[in-house]
């Protein structure tokens, strides 16, 4: 399972890729693996202001329905409409084709408060013992 070093991670399994004053958001490989086959992704309207920790959308798999949480404050400036017809992109390519929203960041410094790849990976729950 991969956790690209250039990304920052939330405790609720989203990633943020900061690109200057903007940031791209999606869910991690671990999250898509836990969810299983994803069948539906609901994304916010462009222009919506989102606050750190708030739900910006909903993801549904054959197993569960979960909120998607925004890693940092910002305004939604783009969303991945390809997920409407092909939600399986999140399973296949969680860090590239399966991206969800692009934000204009209110405060890029907030990103430094998120985990780096090593810290995220270290905090993944240990599978229950036999």
């Amino acid at each position: 399972m991969e956790f690209p070093p250039q990304l920052r991670y939330t405790t609720s399994d989203e990633w943020l890729h900061v690109q200057g004053r903007e940031g791209v958001v999606g869910i991690t490989d671990h999250a898509q693996d836990q969810l299983g086959d994803i069948v539906f992704v609901e994304l916010p309207e462009i222009g919506r202001q989102v606050k750190r920790g708030e739900a910006f959308g909903v993801i549904e798999s054959v197993k569960a329905v979960c909120d998607l949480h925004t890693p940092v404050d910002g305004e939604v400036i783009a969303r991945n409409d390809a997920l409407t017809d092909a939600p399986e992109l999140v399973n296949r390519s969680p860090y590239a084709d399966g991206w969800m929203i692009r934000l204009r960041l209110s405060d890029p410094a907030q990103a430094t408060e998120l985990r780096d790849a090593a810290a995220y990976q270290a905090a993944l729950p240990a599978a229950p013992a036999h």
Binding site: G36, D37, I38, V39, F40, E60, V62, P87, E88
Partner: peptide, 8 residues
């Protein structure tokens, strides 16, 4: 059954 396909 293809449950994911049926939902998508």
């Amino acid at each position: 059954l293809d449950e994911a396909g049926a939902a998508r």
